[in-house]
Amino acid sequence: MTASDARYRWAQATVIALLCAPLAILAWDFVREIRQPGVAFGPDPAETIVRYLGEWAIRILLATLAVSPVARLLGRPRLVRYRRTFGLAAFSYAVVHFTGYLVLLAGLDAGTFLADFVERPYITVGLAALVLLVPLAVTSTRRWQRRLARNWRRLHRLVYAIGVLACIHLLWLSKGDYMDAALYGGILALLLGERLARYTKRLRERGVHET
């Protein structure tokens, strides 16, 4: 093992620990809440927990999208190695957020869930985002990357659509004030805008070479 390998491992472990921290805090709050109902989550634990997890899911999702631009900005392309860890963390938070909704808000009742899914567009959109994350999580390994070759990049562009769906989910569940939706939507617009700018620049350069 070279020194740089060791450093990478430590860095990777640190990143994972940081990404797990919000879950660890939630777990600790669970313990406090069980000991004394109300102290950690207030009078409406279900809403408090589902919101907390949803908020971390979208933050980490946007962080995932930020990894490669940040790596470019810093001129350290190897930082992209951490992208998979971020992506899997975003997926995990989305799964736990969804589970929290199913257990705490829908009360594990299939009828409630189906009615919500059909009648409440913000739920439909959230679920679409979650479902689309599944193939990305499954194919996030090196092996799948090799197996899919060029198609891997194409497939993983789905993450842009997932980001948009997540922001629509947030927008549609906001009422009265759109601060959070504007904040996260604005960050997403920046991240997608940067890619679009690079893409059109590439197109133009290619055009120049061809003539």
């Binding site: 669970f30 809440e33 009078p43 409406d44 634990p45 009648e119 409440r120 567009p121």
Partner: peptide, 19 residues
């Protein structure tokens, strides 16, 4: 309501184990 079913309600405080 488009966001919430109005057939039932959660009487607060609810707890972790019972909505």
């Amino acid at each position: 309501h488009p966001r919430w079913s109005q057939a039932s309600e959660r009487r607060l405080p609810s707890t972790l184990f019972s909505p």
